[in-house]
């Protein structure tokens, strides 16, 4: 709206309403931040008697905080990396092709985005189980029995990194493909043609011309994939059960469900550790949010 000075009454209601909305949005954070730095924190919001980092130390000393963090980073990092590669190549192909399958494929990836993951969870479990058995068969035939378990931890589909990485990457691939397709649509073909005239092979065009040009698009699709994978709760909940593969969201969830006295300071500290990367990624992704809306659904 055109900037017209507020009358005192309008100004009061404007800032008053904004204050109330902001309060609503920020209140829940107050407890989390207070509790994380309060060694004696409880479920209720209170002024801490003492403020220190002991909760954070305990996450890494008494609990397997480091393990959970590493597992989350491996799985989400792996999924993000996979999404970047697949969506980079796939988006390029989708943008440049005029083949008959282009339109049906684009429609399909929008429809895939609207399917609630919970609706797929049962058949997915069976697919993952089948894959896991197949992989286990292969692993057993090539690896000495003592090592099967530790190898399966990496390549297994149930209770293994590989399966979860593939699954999370697939779930967030449609949005990334869409972003990259739209992005490459805006990259003039003339850049590539100029490179062809300059004598660049496909490999050189990819590395020297397309990749640098695609960086903003890849940043957007990578950030969205990371945010979505990082925040996902359903898939780790369903497909991870062994403690050595536990990820941050499950660490929080199980610490919260503990029957004995819940250690809220510890819980809040884990939550802060888990939330920080998400907030940073979100802040970085913010400027892509609106452009992406056309094809993507909120994650």
């Amino acid at each position: 709206m055109a900037e017209r000075p507020d009358t005192p009454k309008t100004a009061a209601s404007r800032y008053g309403l904004l204050f109330v909305i902001s309060l609503y949005c920020i209140m829940p954070f107050v407890w989390l931040l207070t509790a994380a730095f309060d060694p004696g924190a409880g479920l209720f919001l209170e002024v801490p008697a003492k403020v220190d980092l002991s909760n954070f130390f305990r996450v890494f000393q008494e609990e397997d905080g480091l393990l959970w963090l590493m597992n989350s980073l491996i799985v989400c990092g792996g999924a993000t990396l996979l999404v970047l590669v697949l969506s980079g190549f796939g988006g390029y192909a989708l943008s440049r092709t005029h083949a008959w399958w282009k339109r049906p494929f684009l429609y399909a990836i929008i429809l895939v985005r609207v399917i609630p993951p919970t609706a797929l969870i049962v058949p997915l479990y069976k697919v993952m189980l089948t894959c896991n058995l197949a992989i286990a068969g292969v692993v057993r035939s090539v690896v000495p029995p003592d090592y099967v378990r530790s190898v399966m931890r990496f390549v297994g589909f149930i209770d293994g990194y590989l399966g979860l990485i593939l699954l999370l990457a697939t779930m967030h691939l449609p949005l990334a493909l869409w972003i990259m397709k739209t992005f490459f649509d805006s990259v003039s073909r003339e850049y590539e043609e100029a490179a062809i005239m300059d004598g660049a092979t496909f490999g050189q065009r990819l590395r020297r011309v397309l990749l640098p040009l695609a960086m903003p698009g890849l940043a957007a699709s990578g950030l969205f994939a990371f945010i979505a994978a990082w925040g996902d709760f359903l898939f780790p909940l369903t497909f991870i059960s062994s403690p050595e593969l536990k990820m941050l969201p499950l660490g929080i969830y199980s610490a919260f469900l503990r029957d004995s006295q819940i250690d809220y300071g510890l819980l809040a500290a884990i939550a802060v550790i888990y939330t920080a990367p998400a907030i940073i990624a979100f802040a970085l992704a913010r400027r892509f949010l609106v452009q992406t809306f056309g094809g993507g659904l909120k994650g």
């Binding site: 003339e190 043609e193 100029a194 490179a195 011309v209 640098p212 960086m215």
Partner: peptide, 11 residues
């Protein structure tokens, strides 16, 4: 060839 958009590599 000199292209219509010049196609100068922005990076």
């Amino acid at each position: 060839m000199v292209f219509q958009s010049y196609a100068l590599y922005p990076h």
